[in-house]
């Protein structure tokens, strides 16, 4: 293993990892660190979305619903009953997974645009419900006003930290875990089944793939991942409201990141976030409220350009570039495969 680290195709990823791991020590600027946290977080969410929409080709435009379920579950458990968000996170994940399974059961009968329409509809139902409901029995949803999370000072057990760096490491850990999960799924039997479903569902079915079970499983996993992201979002911002965490725009943003990067690949969503997050965060910081909407305008233009000119996302272009760099560095593993290498 260590000897292999001499090869660029092994040490380059390690180098990236090392840089990511040491980043808070390199960067003192809080704003820039914030941008990196959002980069990791967006990549995380887009990767979660990618499990059902990318691998299995079921375009979801309502994934904010699952993020919202996670955020609301852990927040309500914490604010009302003092249960640590770390535990609430798991609860939220399980509830979202059950919800993803249940909603998928009828909705997966629909194909293509009809499925996308249905995802918008359930996303909207949940948003409208929470936005207009003050409380359900003892559970206080607080409607449109949203829920403020009290800051208890530095208390890691309660998912609250004083420094941005600590949040950065939580985001990094979640990011790496979701990449590992994506990689495992993609390279498992399930991943092949999902990709068969994405290509041609009827053909997959006729070859004996249990398509509805596969899609339901992928949907539940995807919902679970999204919900954990929701808890992070809540603890990081210390405020959640339905117009933010449950909005249709948020759902669209998650999908756009995944698609621009390259849906159905492990690293596509990461690249999408790498391109789009700095764009949105920097415009937000420097142009502020005065030019509201600039980042979404840019998102829209980039999305249209990508759909028109690079239909499979930037991952393809990037992949070629990366292999060319490896070849330039004289990597024997890649050149042995005549430059083709593993697909990312």
């Amino acid at each position: 293993m260590l000897r292999r680290l001499r090869y660029p195709s092994y040490f380059l990823p390690f180098l990236f990892l090392l840089i990511l791991g040491l980043l808070p020590f390199i960067i003192n600027n809080e704003y820039i660190l914030q941008v990196f946290i959002m980069f990791l977080f967006n990549a995380y969410l887009a990767s979660g979305w990618n499990i059902i929409s990318g691998f299995a080709g079921q375009l979801s435009l309502g994934h904010a619903a699952f993020v919202g379920i996670g955020a609301y579950t852990s927040t309500i458990l914490f604010v009302q009953w003092g249960i640590s968000p770390w535990i609430g996170m798991i609860f939220g994940g399980v509830i979202a997974a059950i919800f993803g399974w249940l909603i998928g059961y009828p909705v997966f009968k629909l194909r293509g645009p009809y499925y996308a329409l249905a995802t918008i509809a359930y996303g909207e139902i949940i948003r409208i419900f929470i936005q207009n409901t003050k409380a359900v029995g003892p559970i206080e949803l607080k409607g449109a006003e949203g829920i403020l999370i009290p800051f208890k000072g530095s208390s890691p057990a309660l998912f609250q930290f004083e420094t941005k760096a600590a949040y950065y490491y939580v985001a990094l850990a979640m990011f790496l875990l979701v990449l590992l999960l994506s990689y495992k799924i993609k390279n498992s039997k399930m991943g092949y089944y999902l990709s068969a479903i994405g290509n041609d569902q009827d053909a997959a079915e006729s070859l004996g793939v249990n398509t509805s079970k596969m899609k339901l499983t992928a949907s539940a996993i995807s919902a679970f991942v999204m919900a954990l992201g929701g808890t992070f979002y809540a603890q990081f911002l210390l405020y959640i409201n339905p117009q933010g965490v449950l909005s249709g725009d948020f759902s669209t943003e998650i999908a756009v990141i995944g698609i621009i990067g390259g849906e159905g690949t492990v690293f596509g969503p990461v690249l999408g976030s790498l391109i789009l997050t700095p764009l949105s965060e920097l415009t937000r910081i420097y142009l502020g409220g005065r030019f509201a909407g600039v980042h979404l305008l840019a998102y829209g233009l980039i999305l249209m350009a990508v759909v028109t000119h690079i239909p499979h996302g930037v991952i393809g272009t990037f992949s070629k570039l990366y292999h060319r760099i490896l070849l330039k560095l004289g990597d024997p593993v890649v050149s042995a495969k005549t430059g083709a290498g593993k697909t990312l």
Partner: peptide, 28 residues
Amino acid sequence: KREFGRNGHAVILLTVGLTLVLQNAALL
């Protein structure tokens, strides 16, 4: 033209992009 005969995701996304552009251009 390019997507003829495929699942139609690309065109959906194109119109989603168009929405973002029009809405935020209006906001701007």
